[in-house]
Simulated scan of single mutants.
Amino acid sequence: MGWTYLSREALARAKAQMDEESMGVRDEIGFLTIHQRYADRFFPGTSVLHTRARYALFVPWLFEDLAGMTGPAAQRALRERERQLAGRLREMGESQVIGGRVFPKPSSQPPSTVYWNALAVWGILRPRLNERTVSRGQAHRLLRTAGATTDDDGQPLLSFDPPFVPLPERPENWQGGDITLRLTAEEAEFLRERLVQLRRNGGNELSLLARLIKTETEAPAEMWADETQAVAGPDQAALMRAQQAASLAGVGRAVYDALLERVVEVDDKREIANRHRDHLAAIITTHGRLAAKLDISALEADIGALPPKLLAVVTATRDWIASRSGNPTALFDVYAAAEARKGPRARLAPTPNGRARRLEWSSDEHGLASPLHYRWEQVSTLLNDLAEAA
């Protein structure tokens, strides 16, 4: 079976789906919008599929190794090289290997897919003249021209800009032998020089990621730690709101699960445990105080206007938490309206499709709701990789 490079639009859709699945639960109501927007603001170029920082060098090295190849031949060669790299890293006992779990099969999400956006945002992949991101196919074609004096039509090449900026020297064992995910000091410095320049949302202010990397220390214990606040600068207030929004989303996801349990019990007349209803009470105790403080207008100033149905959910949920009602049934209509965007997959709907979807849902197997994480685990690994470079 063949394979092709994804378009920028397809990659964006895939990224959204992967972010959603990484939350541990389906994003039935739409809280993922808040997660993605704040994560992109604070940590540009990051993805929930990122594992280790050295992949940001592995990918361009692999492309440069294949200079001269284009089209399907380059795609097949890259796929095989990425598969081999996964095997070599796995043999060294590395635990965060992209494709390690499926080796010797190739990964469906190889490093060149996972890190391509990061390479562009982090200034490792040069932009095109129109500022659009160079695609992987275009990168192969640009590399092919490195040793050529004419293009494919026989016309002389007036200039040549390789797709990647000058990279650190490859390790001696790059082509064969033992290799790990640990950065060398030179590699870490290369990445640090680019990451400390990252601006927030394309503006003039340094991103929170850049400010954290400037400290040249390991990651704080949590995103909301004093050490993070101390370097957040103009993002301090937004960071506080992001924490409040994370807590509200955690409560909101628990509300959805509790409502679903109730519909199964009351409307479908099926026995079901109170697992998620009990968890709702617990998460309100832990996160309700923070969630009730959220200034929604200020949140939208941080990350842009929310979709109307999500805005209605966020507003109603905050007000419900502040009321200390404890009974989520008053939120049913606004949550059902938000979930309706999923069409026949909506579980709260009083329709045959809704009942069928509820029959497929298992309260015991469905993960308990938790706050948004804004990719902090991946950011922490990046910070620690840079700090621990050999």
Rank of each mutant, 00 (worst) to 15 (best):
S22R: 07
S108C: 11
W376N: 01
R52G: 01
V25I: 10
L49I: 05
A53K: 00
R347C: 11
L382M: 01
A56W: 05
D65E: 13
L11E: 13
S247Y: 13
T228L: 04
A230I: 04
L294P: 03
Q84G: 11
T51I: 01
I179D: 10
E261S: 11
E300T: 07
D27T: 04
V255D: 07
D19Y: 01
A346F: 07
D27Y: 02
V255P: 08
H279S: 12
A118Q: 02
F103Q: 08
I283K: 08
M223K: 09
D19E: 05
G288W: 00
A387P: 02
G343Y: 08
L195E: 03
A338Q: 04
Q229M: 13
Y335W: 07
T228R: 01
N274P: 14
S362P: 14
R192Q: 00
T145C: 14
G367N: 12
V48Q: 01
A232I: 09
P60A: 04
E91S: 06
E193S: 00
L299W: 05
L191F: 00
G250P: 04
V266T: 12
G154W: 10
V25N: 08
W61H: 11
L143M: 08
R128L: 04
I34C: 02
R88A: 11
A73W: 12
I98G: 08
M92S: 14
L260I: 13
P171H: 10
R341Q: 09
V263D: 15
H35E: 10
R324Y: 05
E193K: 00
N353G: 10
T33L: 09
P168I: 03
L32H: 05
Y38N: 05
L143N: 09
A237T: 15
L119I: 02
L208F: 12
K15R: 07
T315K: 08
E227G: 03
G203N: 14
T215L: 04
F164V: 05
R357E: 12
S362W: 12
V263Y: 15
F42C: 08
D235S: 12
L310S: 06
E222V: 05
I283V: 06
P171L: 09
L167A: 01
S323N: 01
S370D: 08
V264W: 14
H287A: 05
G202H: 03
R126M: 03
Q155D: 06
P162C: 09
L57A: 02
F332S: 14
R83L: 15
Q236R: 14
A322Q: 01
A254L: 04
G304V: 08
R199F: 09
N353V: 15
S323E: 00
P328V: 03
A346E: 11
R88Y: 10
A39N: 09
L125M: 01
E216G: 06
D295F: 02
W224C: 11
R136E: 06
T286N: 10
A254V: 06
E187S: 00
A356K: 13
H373R: 05
E216S: 08
R289Y: 13
A86P: 06
V165T: 03
V134R: 01
P106Y: 14
G203D: 11
L129H: 08
R262F: 13
V134Y: 00
W224H: 11
L248S: 07
A210Y: 02
A356C: 13
A356T: 13
E365C: 12
F58K: 08
L62H: 15
A258D: 14
E261L: 14
